[in-house]
C-alpha cells in the first residue's frame, strides 16, 4: 500500500469564493417565483387583476404543494413511487365534505369560530381517514414490491382504481356540490382587487405547513433522520435507526397531507368527484418532477410556479392554459434534467 507521508501537504488549501455566475445558478430556482410574479405583472399591467390572479395562483400552488410534499419525501426515502397517492386526495375530500355536511348547523352560522371549528373537524376526520388508509395501503400493496419500480407502478395504479371505484360504491356515482361555510364565502377588497377570503386562508395554511415542515426537517432529530435517509438510507440503517419505521411514518403523514389537500381543494372548487384525485395527480407529478424527486423545497417552488403560471396564462391566453404546465415542465427539464433542486444521493 502507499506510504503515508508524515508532513502536512506542502500546498495550502484555500476556499475559493464562488463566482457570481455559480452563485446565480445556485440561487436561480429560488428566484423563479418572484421573477414569474414580476413577469406576470409586466404582462397584465393592471394592479387589481394581477393581485387577484397572484393570490389565486398562490392558493392553488399551496394546495398542490400540500398534496405533493408527501409523495416527494416517500420517493426520496424509499425509492417508492406511489401512483395511488391521488386516491388519498379524493378520499380526503369525500370524508371531509361528508363531515362538513353533517355539521350543517356550524357551517351555516355566521360565526367565524363555529365555521372554523367545522372545517377543523372535517380536516381532522379526513386526515385520520387518509392516514389510516395510507397505512393499510403501504402494508398491503406497497410493501411486497419494494425495489421493483415496474411492479410498484402497476400495483399502485391498481390501488388507485380500486379506491376510486369504492368511493363510487360508498358515496354514489355523481359529483357532490357543496357551499363553503358562511364566513369563508365572500371576498375582501384590497387595493381595488377583490380577493376571496378562502384563498387567503389557503395561502396561510400552505405557508404555515411549509414552515412547519421545514422546521421539522431541519431542526428536529426525526427530521435529521429523514433527511439522512433520503441521502443515504443504508448508512442510516447501519447506524441503528429503523428506517422502515421512519418510512412508514412518512408514508402515513404524506397520505394524511394528501387528505388535507383534498378537503381544501374540494372547498376551493365547491364540487368533488371521485376522479378529482387522479386529475390532481397529474399536476402533482409535474410539480414533483420539476422540483426534483425527493426535494420538499423543490416541490414548494414547483407548486407555486404551476399555480401562478396556470392563472396568469388562463387570463392572458386562455387557449394556452391547457398546455402551460407541460410547457413549464419541458422548459425546466431542458434547463435541469433532474429537476430544479435534485437531491444529492450518496451512491
Amino acid at each position: 500500500m502507499s506510504v503515508q507521508s508524515e508532513a502536512a501537504p506542502a500546498h495550502r488549501p484555500t476556499i475559493a469564493a464562488l463566482s457570481p455566475r455559480d452563485r446565480l445558478a445556485r440561487a436561480a430556482p429560488f428566484l423563479l417565483v418572484p421573477v414569474l410574479v414580476l413577469l406576470g405583472f409586466a404582462l397584465i399591467g393592471s394592479v387589481p387583476t394581477w393581485l387577484t390572479l397572484t393570490v389565486s395562483g398562490l392558493a392553488m400552488g399551496m394546495m398542490i404543494f400540500i398534496m405533493a410534499s408527501g409523495l416527494t419525501l416517500v420517493f426520496g426515502l424509499m425509492d417508492v413511487i406511489n401512483f395511488g397517492h391521488g386516491a388519498f386526495i379524493s378520499v380526503g375530500a369525500f370524508v371531509g365534505i361528508s363531515v362538513l355536511a353533517a355539521l350543517g348547523d356550524w357551517t351555516g352560522a355566521a360565526s367565524l369560530g363555529l365555521n372554523m371549528a367545522a372545517v377543523l373537524a372535517a380536516v381532522m376526520a379526513a386526515m385520520a381517514a387518509t392516514g389510516a388508509l395510507g397505512w393499510g395501503f403501504e402494508r398491503v400493496l406497497v410493501r411486497p414490491v419494494y425495489g421493483a419500480h415496474l411492479r410498484q407502478i402497476l400495483v399502485t395504479v391498481g390501488g388507485l382504481i380500486v379506491i376510486e371505484q369504492m368511493i363510487h360504491v360508498v358515496w354514489g356515482p355523481d359529483e357532490i356540490f357543496l357551499t363553503r361555510p358562511e364566513m369563508l364565502k365572500g371576498a375582501t377588497l384590497f387595493l381595488g382587487a377583490a380577493i376571496e377570503t378562502y384563498r387567503l386562508l389557503a395561502v396561510a395554511v400552505g405557508l404555515v405547513l411549509f414552515v412547519a415542515m421545514r422546521l421539522v426537517l431541519r431542526r428536529t432529530r426525526i427530521g435529521l433522520i429523514v433527511r439522512a435517509g433520503v441521502q443515504n438510507g443504508e448508512m442510516v440503517e447501519a447506524l441503528g435507526y429503523r428506517l422502515r419505521l421512519v418510512f412508514i411514518g412518512t408514508f402515513v403523514a404524506g397520505s394524511a397531507l394528501a387528505g388535507l389537500g383534498g378537503v381544501m381543494w374540494g372547498l376551493y372548487q365547491e364540487v368533488i368527484t371521485a376522479g378529482m384525485g387522479e386529475q390532481m395527480m397529474i399536476l402533482v407529478f409535474i410539480v414533483v418532477i420539476i422540483g426534483g424527486l425527493g426535494s420538499v423545497e423543490g416541490a414548494f417552488i414547483g407548486a407555486l410556479m404551476v399555480g401562478l403560471l396556470q392563472n396568469y396564462v388562463a387570463f392572458l391566453a386562455p387557449k394556452l392554459a391547457l398546455v402551460s404546465n407541460i410547457g413549464l415542465m419541458t422548459v425546466i427539464l431542458m434547463w435541469r434534467p433532474e429537476g430544479m433542486l435534485p437531491v444529492v444521493r450518496a451512491k
Partner: peptide
Amino acid sequence: DRWLLWLGVLFI
C-alpha cells in the same frame, strides 16, 4: 358501472 373495480382487483 363498477366493472373497473373488479378489473382493478384482478389487476393487483
